[in-house]
Amino acid sequence: MDTQKRVIIWLSALLVIAIASIGAYQVATGPRAELPRKDGTMSLALDQSDWTKGAKTPKVTFVEYSDFQCPACGAYYPMLEEMFAEYKDQISFTYRHFPLAQHKNARSSAYASEAAGKQGKFWEMADMLFKNQSEWSEETTAPTIFEGYAQKIGINVEQYKTDVKSDAVKAKVDRDLQSGKLSLISHTPTFFINGKMSDNPRSKEELKALIEYAITHP
């Protein structure tokens, strides 16, 4: 074998080994993708960036993954409000976004609530969105309608218009959505009681029974 061929063989071997080593190292130390939770627990713990209301030291944490345009979420809204009013001294209530792809205004409504939240009126905007769900759900001008809501709840509309387009607002909605996917949410609304996925209650009574049970069985 001539020298040139030998050099080529050994050099290619070295190159291949170097590439394989670097590849293996990169894969081994690269950012770890979080695996979905199959046990029905919530993938992302509650933190400061969440919209949480109610008791400061709650006996029960109640988290809703929801979509402002989803009719079922709208139907649950009064039930959840009533429950919250009754138990607000004992529980905390957290809203997380899970905008479904088939709802064309799901994302823009989620952005609207986050932008209102920048001015401290997240819950007020959420209330407007759920109560007037049928008014904007199928409208192409939904973002304009939301600006009207912003005015009604008394926030700075110019500031709102800037915030609603901001990356921070989008990032927050994406964070919630991603955490919901990792929790293997398959429908909206999905509720987590003390971090455990709960079956959707079919009535006010069932919802209250769930809360009562969680309070008495910490």
Partner: peptide, 11 residues
Amino acid sequence: GFTDSAFLLAK
């Protein structure tokens, strides 16, 4: 085999 072992070693 080398890549597999290198991966485990890096881990």
